[in-house]
Amino acid sequence: MEKGTSLWNDAWRRLSHNLPAIISLFVLIFILLLCFIGPLLPFVQSPSAIDLANSTAGPSTAHWFGTDPLGRDLFSRVLYGGRVSLSVGLVATAVAVCIGVIYGAIAGYAGGKLDDFLMRFVDILFALPFLVLVILFSLVVDRPASEFTEWFIRKSGWARDSVAPITTLIPLFIAIGAIGWLTIARIVRAQVMAVKNQEFVEAAVSLGLSRSRILFRHILPNVIGPIIIYTTLAVPGIMLLESVLSFLGLGVKPPGSSWGILIKEGADRMETSWLLLFFPSLFFASTLFALNFLGDGLRDALDPKSAKD
């Protein structure tokens, strides 16, 4: 058996030979830096400065991407919107994937009655009306979230404008995480069931290893491929879910924004000012393309069997 570190070294070596994955990695890092560090730069304008006289203007030196219908700088709105979309996409996906993987793995590995019970629970959650849940959820979290914001501002003494956009998003993360894990749980369960009767698992059982060790050390690494793939697939759905929830009052409050909201606004105007659709979509699509190619690269690199190729 090889040492753990060299497994990662191997994976990294294989990944670095995968050109599209490496390009994707750089694109992602670039977009992340642009969105999270970019707005600190002096020439990036305020995303909420309204100038009605200058509405839906084309790109210029003052406004690189032009302006939106309220005359706000689109470049800065795309960057600020990216902060929301990227953090929602990455954090909420991570939450959903963690819950889904553990839940699905346990259901698949345990099998029998426990599996049936766990999966019927998933069915029920899956069939419950999504909008009803969201409306109820927004009712419950509305007051605690704003009270928490006020409390945090009082305690920390930080400026409201830097605190509020983040604290008001916490309910959104929870909501998305809580509903996003169902499909991944099903997929992981199916994979674990397919793997758990293979020879290497039987070997581990006969060695007397504990069940949790077998599940998490031996079975899960063998189903990491579908997990990575599904994770990267889930990100776009979750990013767009944010825009749906924002329309229902959860999520970003206007004048804040996100890529989903910007794209929706742009889609309504695609025939009059297509640039309003083009720029946010460009960022959104590049991120997702990069993320998915990186995901495939990671999958290939981490595939324990391809190591022997």
């Binding site: 909420s48 400065a49 309204i50 009605l52 219908p69 309220l70 329309f247 229902l248 009052g249 206007p254 004048p255």
Partner: peptide
Amino acid sequence: SKETAATLAQATQA
């Protein structure tokens, strides 16, 4: 969460 309400509110806010 309908129609032009959000745009109106943002313009008024500003």
